[in-house]
Design a protein around this nucleic acid. Structure first.
Lengths: 163, 163
DNA sequence: ACCAGCCAGTTGCATGATCCGACTCACTAC
DNA sequence: GTAGTGAGTCGGATCATGCAACTGGCTGGT
């Protein structure tokens, strides 16, 4: 399963990627968001191998991203539903979708749209500073090791060994 | 390289995942955001195989996410810098980081923080509706095929070519 | 001149993951 | 009893990855 643990990396991104950085995980989640919950439907929709799908599903259930729930007995049949933890990844999907639309546009416009349920408005991902409220571009931001409360940006640049 | 093309999936998420859904891509990008730009530094920081790193870097350069730039001649040596397109993925990283912090917390609190360069404020990625300006939670949002407003599960399963 | 070291790779083999397609098994509907 | 459905399992071939050693320019020290 290539269950790689990015050893030595005390980084939440790395930990998140142990799950998400797997080719099928996000696609499976996407489908469960869209209402595809059953084994054969997922298999057909994704074009994934049955064996790999079995593995991924049970792994995602173990990790608490999906819930495996019987929807009938005799014979027992199951469906897979995203949990809160699983749904918490949807912003990641949104950003990916918007990024894909921007840099790999489909000929006839985006085949899917992301919209606000209530008013039907489109959504654009924004980064906003919690403190000053400014709208930020990616370059206005840095990821820093937390070691010190210091706000010296130079120190952050100088050091990466803690990360 | 596992350069899988999720055939039949006219979906921006799938297209984005052809790049991002690869175990190392996002970690490499993260490091370039943090100021790690050189081959050996990346290799040491990531624990990735040299061969795989070579492959990934040149692929990311081909895809326009990184720029390969000589920083000296004699001997020629190169560094890898994120392009605008590459930086545009940083919100994805932010979300992953926050998701990792929330569901796989480190014992002593998050080892890294995301902050605004200018004022040092923390950043929480948000999804905002372009139309009504409301802050949205994952459940306020849906991803819809653009063609038709509704589809039964069976129809969706039957057809992935629209998706 | 010689050796050590740095940097950015390349090469080769063993291992492990993935794909493909066929098979199972329980049950239902005709 | 024959066909169909849903959720898997199994086996062989292929592909990607990990590991570790090697190359090849160049610098700097002695």
């Amino acid at each position: 399963m290539l269950n790689r643990t990015y050893r030595d990396q005390a980084c939440s991104i790395a930990r998140a990627l142990e799950i998400v950085g797997e080719r099928w995980t996000l696609l499976i989640l996407r489908d469960t968001y869209r209402g595809i919950h059953r084994f054969d439907d997922l298999q057909a929709s994704l074009g994934i191998t049955r064996g790999v799908l079995t593995q991924r599903l049970s792994w995602l259930v173990d990790e608490g991203l999906l819930e495996r729930r019987p929807y009938q007995t005799n014979p027992e049949r199951f469906e897979y539903l995203p949990t809160t933890k699983g749904r918490a990844l949807s912003p990641v999907l949104m950003h990916l979708l918007l990024w894909g639309d921007r840099y790999y546009p489909s000929p006839g416009g985006p085949p899917q749209i992301v919209e606000h349920n209530e008013c039907g408005g489109r959504i654009t991902p924004q980064l906003t500073c919690d403190q000053c409220g400014q709208q930020l571009r990616p370059s206005d931001i840095s990821i820093r090791p937390r070691t010190k409360p210091a706000r010296s940006r130079r120190a952050a640049a100088r050091r990466a060994d803690v990360a």
